[in-house]
């Protein structure tokens, strides 16, 4: 059975079709989920895509948190459902407290779109298992509010528990504390990442195909956990 991966569309989601394409290229079946439909339709995993949900009004991700689908998603995430939040999706995950910390305005105050080098720090999460620890990858980054912040205690905890999944290499593009580009929850099923792996899945359109690893990791971990057959 092909793994079914839901991609949630909020008003203002922009990279939902890109996320669906990445799921398909990794061998999964993408399932469109609608913000107003409080039903996950029995998917095996969920991607919260990039964009400007609700126009980023109030605070990035703050209004999306109250969408009907989110109550189901938070329960499912706490129950172990693999969830990947990319960019705005990461912001929704921190607003929903599935992940700690917050994303703030880039320290240089400009939106920035560029190809960003990352180092994979953790390959035990559902979304990074196909990478080697220490692997250096290049994927697009594009955000205006991508600076990851948390209090020192939380940052120490994340580091201590190996929950930083990727770090920026070279110039820190947005002022993120400790160069953090992505983190996971303690269980390893919920991952938030600021750069865009779904934009690096085809040679023609991305700087590399390094981003595909996040999606193949998911398929691998679903198979290994017996959620779907190989």
């Amino acid at each position: 059975m092909t793994p079914r991966v839901g991609v949630i569309t909020f008003p203002g989601s922009l990279d939902d079709k890109d996320a669906a394409r990445a799921v398909r290229l990794a061998g999964g079946e993408s399932v469109s989920l609608w913000h107003a439909d409080a039903n996950l339709h029995s998917v095996d995993a969920v991607v919260l895509p990039g964009g400007f949900s609700y126009g980023d009004y109030l605070r990035c991700g703050a209004i999306a948190k109250f969408a009907p689908v989110m109550e189901k998603l938070v329960d499912a995430g706490n129950g172990g459902l693999p969830i990947l939040g990319i960019c705005n999706g990461f912001q929704v995950l921190t607003e929903s407290h599935l992940l700690p910390g917050a994303l703030t305005r880039n320290d240089h105050l400009h939106f920035i779109c560029r190809d960003q080098k990352l180092r994979i720090e953790n390959n035990s999460s559902a979304w990074t298992s196909d990478f080697e620890v220490g692997a250096e990858i290049l994927i697009p980054l594009k955000n205006g509010e991508g600076g990851y912040v948390a209090d020192e205690k939380t940052l120490d905890e994340l580091e201590g528990e190996g929950r930083v999944i990727a770090r920026y290499l070279g110039l820190n593009p947005n002022g993120s504390r400790r160069d953090i580009a992505g983190i996971t929850n303690a269980r390893g099923n919920v991952v938030g990442i600021m750069p865009h792996p779904e934009h690096a899945v085809e040679k023609l359109t991305g700087p590399t195909t390094d981003g595909l690893g996040f999606f193949t990791s998911l398929i691998t971990s679903l198979v290994n956990n017996g959620k779907v057959s190989a």
């Binding site: 890109d18 394409r21 400009h110 939106f111 920035i112 779109c113 934009h199 085809e202 991305g206």
Partner: peptide, 14 residues
């Protein structure tokens, strides 16, 4: 200038 614009969204930029 151009790094302040998103050129990747939609995944069809060649």
């Amino acid at each position: 200038v151009t790094s302040q614009y998103d050129r990747y969204v939609m995944g069809n930029t060649i």
